[in-house]
Design a protein around this nucleic acid. Structure first.
Lengths: 222, 222
DNA sequence: ATCCTAGGTGTACGGTGTACGCCAGTCAAC
DNA sequence: GTTGACTGGCGTACACCGTACACCTAGGAT
């Protein structure tokens, strides 16, 4: 039992942080909780990680580095599409990644590599560097496999156990279109939940189509 | 001096919080700091605000409620465009709004109204409810006037005062496209900074074009 | 045998949100 | 009037956070 404690290392710290986030969410990743899991005192972590920002950067880096490569020889569209969907697949096992990516500012190695690869797809597609630049902005967060949306919570402050239909009816004349959308979605899908995968693919395809048209019309910035 | 203190009210609390965020950023809005500004003890705020989430919700609500209406009689494209740009304009005086919106989950009155109005523009444009629904997802955060982008910080861990060109040269073979984009941007614009306004408008126009094409081809979900 | 150093420890500080109890004023009902 | 409830501000206290700083200890190089 004396030797039960493997020595800490940056890899071990980051891996444990990822595991902790996977299990209990990003908010559960505090330096203290992480240290406890590693059977170590909180300050010990600071020998392997500069501060919490650095830890989160490293967590994102670790997952992004594991993104699957697109199939060799795919054309630019298929390649970029595959890259985005590979990123999305990782979100399944790491739900925290979404919020973590949204709050990161530093571009670490794997992050830059992912961005560079996506830009490379566009370059391969015959876009000008200027176009590539702006299209990367348009692509935005979806490069990381998700469509960021604010206010994705409940339709409104829906009382727990309240009659949804009553709520809808009450809101109908104030927010007719929102209610119509909700009703339509409920008719198409149990509970009216949205298929995030389908949303992403639609957005992605609209993006790819728009990009191609931009290129074909010779668009340039300024 | 006895009567100098107007009584607190939810409006006054929220307005002061907005002013504080405008001045010192969102992180400066702590219950304690806000209470100090209002010359009151922290716990007094809780008589007017359920908790901090509620305060942030109310701050967002206050600003969103002030969005300018699009010109009467504009067609769906112009109307939706104007709505998004009105939202963007508010970001100028409230830089914190971006991050605040990103982290909100509750759809308050003004928030729902803005979403409903945008959906209404699309309905007016002859889209099916199904299309409107999906297009709202595609529009995503841009409905609020900004294109969310992760990793918007420094190109890489750029040493303060380091020679940028040296950094670029070093990164060139690892991230050729990213470097090419940076070089191109620097040639076009001092410092290589990006014109966020132009980015948003490009994304918006690509969206509007894509939407129209979706409609004209009779796209439906599922 | 000695020094250096990497890595884990312990304590402490200043910050956060907020639960809980108290208390002074206001105002309605008797 | 007096009373009693209600509203809104106060004070204290708690649990948690990130992390600065000083210390100690084991291992390896000299």
């Amino acid at each position: 039992m004396a030797e039960r404690r493997r020595p800490l290392s940056r890899e071990r710290v980051v891996a444990e942080a990822v595991a902790l986030a996977d299990a209990d969410g990003l908010d559960a990743v505090s330096m203290r909780a992480l240290a406890t899991r590693l059977d170590v005192v909180p300050m010990a972590l600071y020998k392997h990680v500069a501060d919490k920002e650095d830890l989160l950067d490293a967590m994102v880096e670790a997952v992004v580095a594991s993104y699957a490569d697109p199939p060799e020889g795919a054309d630019w569209r298929a390649s970029l599409r595959a890259r985005v969907l590979a990123a999305r697949d990782e979100l399944g096992s790491h739900p925290w990644l979404r919020r973590a990516i949204e709050t990161r500012a530093r571009r670490t190695e794997a992050v830059l590599a992912h961005m560079d690869a996506a830009a490379g797809d566009l370059v391969a597609g015959g876009f000008t560097i200027d176009q590539v630049h702006h299209l990367m902005h348009v692509l935005g967060h979806r490069l990381w496999g998700f469509s960021p949306e604010a206010f994705a919570g409940e339709p409104t402050a829906i009382a727990p156990g309240a009659d949804l239909e009553a709520v809808l009816a009450a809101a109908e004349q104030r927010f007719p279109h929102v209610v119509a959308i909700t009703r339509d979605a409920m008719a198409r899908r149990p509970g009216g939940s949205c298929d995030e995968g389908a949303e992403l693919e639609l957005a992605l395809d609209l993006f790819l189509d728009g990009a191609a048209r931009l290129r074909d019309t010779g668009w340039a910035s300024g």
